[in-house]
């Protein structure tokens, strides 16, 4: 607990949360409609417009919200205690993200160690295999599903390995950006941050390459059974997080150029860096469990 409650900054009324709520609403209704329409008629209806509007509103919200926030921070309203609140908030947010990925990793482990072997007769499931899936064999990666769909597995050599190296490097560069910040070397900070962003882009580009390769050469698609499902959902959600992380870093980059942040006051910088490290760790787990083993 802390003894400087006296200066805790409680912001006055703010319009941004409700704007954000409307944004979420539009995104949900829009994507709900979009998904339904596409699955039924193969064409997008009005949903995409609502979705787009929602995303714009969300963007406006973030812009406005963070602008206010930055103004407060720059005018010195934020106490050290508030800084702690923000940091704790961010770390618990990251924890909740970890749990989100845990659900998909859980699905991966479950299918690999339980459902696929069971379908082939493991454990108490001899009859399952005998009566329902007589020709099915349990292998991982699951290159042939019980219903007979086939695909090829994605190796870890090549693009995935390069991507791993890219992300690892980016974790180092962002670390040095932080070091630069703490030592007051702003040049180093901005260069290193710039590198990190470039590495982020490089990762995303290669990931797109990899997806194209998967679809065109390997026949590995979203609907090629649980191997494809877990592969694309895990790497896909990870990719989405890299995208958001990169955007986050870009914002930080411009703030660095605008002279923001100092050794004491750099919550946004720090949370961007935490987020980036988190994305990195998720990738390592992915690399091991999705690609290698």
């Amino acid at each position: 607990m802390s003894d400087n409650n006296a200066t805790y900054y409680v912001p006055a009324q703010s319009p941004w949360p409700i704007v954000g709520a409307v944004g979420f609403f539009l995104v949900a209704v829009g994507s709900g409609n979009l998904v339904t329409q596409i699955s039924k008629t193969g064409e997008a209806g009005w949903g995409q417009l609502v979705l787009l509007a929602g995303l714009i509103v969300l963007f406006i919200m973030m812009f406005g919200w963070f602008r206010d926030q930055i103004k407060e921070s720059q005018t010195g309203l934020h106490s050290a205690q508030l800084g702690i609140s923000y940091r704790q908030g961010m770390s618990w947010f990251i924890f909740s993200e970890v749990m989100f990925f845990a659900a998909f990793f859980g699905a991966l482990f479950y299918t690999r160690t339980i459902s696929v072997p069971w379908l082939a007769g493991a454990g108490n499931n001899a009859m399952t295999a005998q009566i329902l899936w007589p020709t099915f064999e349990a292998i991982w990666p699951l290159t042939e599903t019980p219903s007979g769909k086939t695909t090829q597995a994605m190796g870890y050599w090549g693009l995935p390995l390069i991507n791993t190296l890219i992300l690892l490097t980016s974790s180092i560069t962002i670390h040095f950006a932080h070091v630069g910040l703490e030592k007051g070397k702003r040049q180093q900070m901005s260069w290193m941050m710039g590198f990190t962003i470039l590495l982020g882009f490089a990762f995303l580009t290669l990931q797109v390459e990899e997806y194209i390769h998967a679809y065109q050469d390997l026949g590995l698609t979203l609907d090629s059974g649980v191997y494809g499902n877990t592969f694309f959902l895990l790497t896909g959600f990870h990719g989405l997080h890299v995208t958001l992380g990169t955007l986050f870093l870009i914002v930080i980059f411009f703030r660095i150029l605008a002279g923001h942040f100092n050794a004491k006051n750099h919550f946004a910088f720090q949370s961007a860096s935490w987020y980036w490290h988190f994305v990195d760790v998720v990738w390592l787990c992915l690399f091991i469990f999705v690609y290698i083993i």
């Binding site: 998904v35 339904t36 596409i38 699955s39 989100f100 845990a102 659900a103 998909f104 859980g106 699905a107 479950y110 299918t111 339980i114 459902s115 696929v116 069971w118 379908l119 329902l132 899936w133 699951l142 599903t145 019980p146 219903s147 769909k149 979203l222 609907d223 090629s224 059974g225 649980v226 191997y227 494809g228 499902n229 959902l233």
Partner: peptide, 25 residues
């Protein structure tokens, strides 16, 4: 959130997390 997301992709995007035919359960 993960569970509903898998429901969404199973229903609308052809995944088979919960479908034995694709190796799910």
């Amino acid at each position: 959130a993960g569970a509903v997301t898998m429901v969404l992709t199973d229903k609308y995007f052809g995944t088979s997390f919960f479908d034995a035919a694709g190796g799910g359960d």
